[in-house]
């Protein structure tokens, strides 16, 4: 009866990560939920370990969630944020590597606008690299917290029917969720404006459901992606009203379906656009459970990646 250890060195994405590793990260996530319910929500596990949060792109909740997870494990935390506009991408990453070497960091949590940036970083540093979102590539910790929330609610992931609504083509949340959920045996369907559904998505094992009402008739849970208003300028989403009419999770739309569908949203919410205010605040939305589960699952990831490796 030895402790299950993950076979991962870094967490760069969920593509290719085994079901066994995902299950270990989720199981320990539930254990850390218990720690977060204690009067003193802190354990000394990562005492003396240095973690740097490198954010090359704006983030509030992911950065705070990681910071809380690190502090509740007693790690020494350094934050480093740069505005996206001041970034010279090629040089930026090289300097980052040199700095991490010089600072003797044990782990790097990085958000970066360039897809693959975390993978690239992991090739050159000794530290454990955790991807906190790299462009439109992956956001593995978000998908893990979504899966933890689904497992908490349903008691299982296998066979669960999960719909993802929104701009699938540009969403790292969608990509990581697709990889993770399919690995864990869930069924996944995506829904959104036709030009925002990647052409090859069905090859991943995902079905495309063009009509939101059809999706709601099928799904046990739906993950509602944030409409990135910055994409509207690029002409990808014509107007907020049009999007809401076609794909918004409105009260009227949900009322047409008898079953209670569980609703997830990675935040921040555009109330009245992709989801109505009443829906976001209803009991079937588990958006705030996702927030606490985000801290717990990030504690689990740090714990396993920085802990003892399996004897080899």
């Amino acid at each position: 009866m030895t402790e299950p250890t993950v076979s991962l060195t870094h967490l760069l994405g969920l593509e290719g990560v085994s079901a066994a590793d995902i299950q270990i990260l989720l199981d320990t996530g539930f254990t850390f939920r218990e720690v977060l319910d204690r009067p003193i929500k802190k354990v000394p596990t990562l005492s003396g370990i240095n973690v740097v949060n490198l954010f090359f792109e704006n983030s509030t909740r992911t950065r705070i969630s990681f910071e809380l997870a690190e502090k509740r494990l007693s790690a020494d935390v350094t934050n480093f944020s740069v505005g996206g506009s001041s970034l010279d991408k090629g040089e930026g990453l090289k300097d980052t590597v040199l700095n991490i070497h010089a600072m003797k960091m044990d782990a790097v949590v990085m958000r970066h606008p360039v897809p693959g940036a975390a993978v690239q970083l992991s090739r050159f540093v000794d530290a454990v690299v955790i991807n906190a979102g790299d462009g439109s590539h992956e956001h593995p910790t978000q998908a893990l917290l979504d899966m933890l929330s689904l497992q908490e609610r349903f008691g299982r992931l296998k066979g669960l029917k999960v719909g993802i609504i929104g701009d699938i083509a540009h969403s790292r949340v969608a990509r990581s969720n697709i990889f993770g959920l399919l690995t864990m045996g869930a069924e996944v369907a995506v829904c959104g404006p036709g030009h925002l559904i990647p052409p090859q998505v069905e090859a991943l094992g995902v079905s495309v459901v063009p009509d939101v009402d059809d999706l709601l008739g099928w799904a046990d849970a739906v993950n509602v992606l944030r409409i990135q208003r910055e994409r509207m300028g690029a002409g990808l989403i014509p107007s907020v009203r049009e999007y809401r009419a076609g794909f918004g999770l409105t009260n009227e739309r949900l009322a047409r379906h008898k079953r209670e569908i569980i609703i997830l949203h990675p935040g921040p919410i555009n109330r009245g656009v992709e989801i109505d205010s009443d829906v976001a605040d209803s009991d079937q939305a588990i958006i705030l459970d996702q927030v606490i589960n985000g801290v717990a699952v990030r504690m689990s990831i740090l714990y396993h990646l920085l802990g003892p490796r399996a004897a080899g």
Binding site: M1, E3, T31, V35
Partner: peptide, 8 residues
């Protein structure tokens, strides 16, 4: 590696 960690 020690026995699997569980909640208190």
């Amino acid at each position: 590696p020690s026995p699997q960690v569980g909640p208190s």
